[in-house]
Design a protein around this nucleic acid. Structure first.
Lengths: 144, 144
DNA sequence: TCTCATATGATAAATATTAACATATAAGAC
DNA sequence: GTCTTATATGTTAATATTTATCATATGAGA
């Protein structure tokens, strides 16, 4: 699946006139391989192995570029640093309130939920981000 | 309404053996008065007026204490610094993708949405945070 | 291969958050 | 009301996160 995503990445870059550099491809690949919504720092660590010289500020800049181009996105989180997601399809998130683990989940009933057409103050709805917080199996087990 | 919330704050502090200091009360009051999900820095600015000497690190510490005690909460956001909310009742959020403005909204149909009992990997759902992103009226007007 | 607009690497700076510790204060005991 | 003590604050420094600057390097079209 990562291969497929990378192929689409290359194609999107060409189509949108985004210069396709080895660094950008590496950052995207790291995100496609880790769908656990990593922080920039974690992406940088993962890249260290194959690319020891890639500096953190460059990763930040690339991340901003890819977000601006709509190739990856930020994920809303309650704690600290920015979290990233290469999965651009509509999906929901499960967030463990103990360990912070965050996993994707897609359920058709929720994917098709839509807000009423009348929102307060003329707000125009575009996207629906549904976050279900609770306990992952591991943390629930520890608690009992 | 702020008065009512402050009264409940005092009571909660007494009940939970949380030492009721003037600083903590001031921070809570600032949050109760500004339900726009301010950042710590904004809370600090708002307090400057009545309490010019209150240092930012103290505001951070108090915020952490109140979160730990369940008297206020963090709000998930995609961008930058931590955002806070003194509204502990179930509600949804409308987030403008241009100006970042974030407002509360409560709709019974959504408030009562519940996930299916079977979530992946034995995840145990507790809370449902629904974020609707789009355009606020002002930004939608500017765009057209 | 050449050219040039744009991306990177290196460095510094700005912003956000947490830690450490001496002093001050809330809350219960007397 | 005063005393006592555990805990919170203020001060300061440190760390973590993110952004800016600018000389050099490189992708992509000519």
């Amino acid at each position: 699946m990562v291969e497929e995503w990378l192929a689409r990445f290359d194609e999107d870059c060409r189509k949108r006139k985004i210069r396709l550099t080895a660094q950008r491809r590496a950052v995207f690949k790291a995100l496609a391989e880790d769908l656990g919504h990593p922080r920039v720092e974690e992406v940088h660590q993962r890249l260290k192995k194959d690319w020891p010289s890639l500096p953190l500020p460059t990763v930040y800049r690339i991340v901003e570029d890819l977000i601006a181009s709509g190739l990856i996105r930020r994920v809303a989180s309650e704690d600290g640093p920015l979290r990233l997601d290469a999965n651009m399809e509509a999906h929901q998130h499960l967030v463990c309130r103990i360990c912070g683990r965050m996993e994707d989940w897609r359920d058709e009933r929720w994917a098709n939920v839509r807000a009423p057409s009348h929102l307060p103050n003329g707000f125009l709805a575009e996207e629906y981000d549904i976050r279900i917080s609770g306990l992952c199996r591991a943390c629930a087990a520890k608690k009992n």
